[in-house]
């Protein structure tokens, strides 16, 4: 759009200039693109851009690094998961940071469905009598994180699985780990209900 195309000189006919201006006026309509909100108000057009809120990551935020994943701290019933024999937060029993840092979950490209999906999930072992997560005194709780290609068939009904992130890769890619789609953002409370003789497990935000 060049305003010089609309300039006139003395003696120029008016009607063509008006027609050019009408077309140019149409080209001045404001149209909203991605992230833009236009509000047509009686006094004019209000242009709003969506605010760039960065960096929200709740509990269980998964980040891939090479063939492993780091998972930010989350709790289930106030219990901290154990990964590779270490607290998920990467501190020792006295609260001092471990020299090797937070534990990582090793990932394998074999643990994917044919459709290219895999999950990082909380795995909890529960008491067959009460349904509560096993947390023996002076011992780490039976609570950890695993990579799994199925969420619906734990080996026993006393084992609860709850996905915190979905890994997805193209179906043709047999070696990659794909990209992360975060599922969980909150700490959890775990409840179990016995139904038809089997435990069913429910995780709800705490």
């Amino acid at each position: 759009m060049d305003i010089r195309d609309l300039l006139v000189r003395s003696g120029d006919p008016v009607l063509p200039a008006v027609n050019r201006l009408a077309l140019a006026q149409r080209a001045l309509r404001l149209l909203p693109g991605r992230g833009i909100l236009l509000s047509q108000m009686p006094g004019g057009v209000s242009v709003s851009a969506r605010s760039a809120v960065r960096g929200f990551s709740g509990a269980w935020a998964v980040a891939l690094s090479g063939r492993s994943a780091t998972i930010s701290l989350g709790f289930v019933d106030g219990l901290e998961p154990i990964l590779d024999g270490k607290l998920l937060s990467g501190v020792d029993a006295k609260g001092n940071p471990l020299p090797e840092g937070a534990p990582r979950l090793k990932l394998t490209p074999e643990e994917f469905t044919p459709a290219g999906k895999s999950w990082i999930a909380i795995r909890a072992e529960t008491d067959p009598e009460t349904g509560r997560i096993l947390a023996p005194k002076d011992q780490p709780p039976k609570l950890t994180l695993v990579q799994t290609k199925t969420l619906f068939s734990p080996e026993k009904d006393t084992v609860a699985l709850h996905a915190v992130a979905l890994l997805r890769r193209p179906a043709k890619d047999k070696q990659g780990l794909g990209t992360v789609h975060q599922i969980a953002f909150f700490d959890y409370q775990h409840r179990a209900a016995k139904q038809e003789g089997r435990w069913r497990h429910f995780f709800t935000p705490a």
Partner: peptide, 12 residues
């Protein structure tokens, strides 16, 4: 047809 405004370079 008009002027399209886009937000760019954002990681919302």
């Amino acid at each position: 047809e008009g002027q399209v405004i886009d937000l760019t370079g954002s990681a919302l």
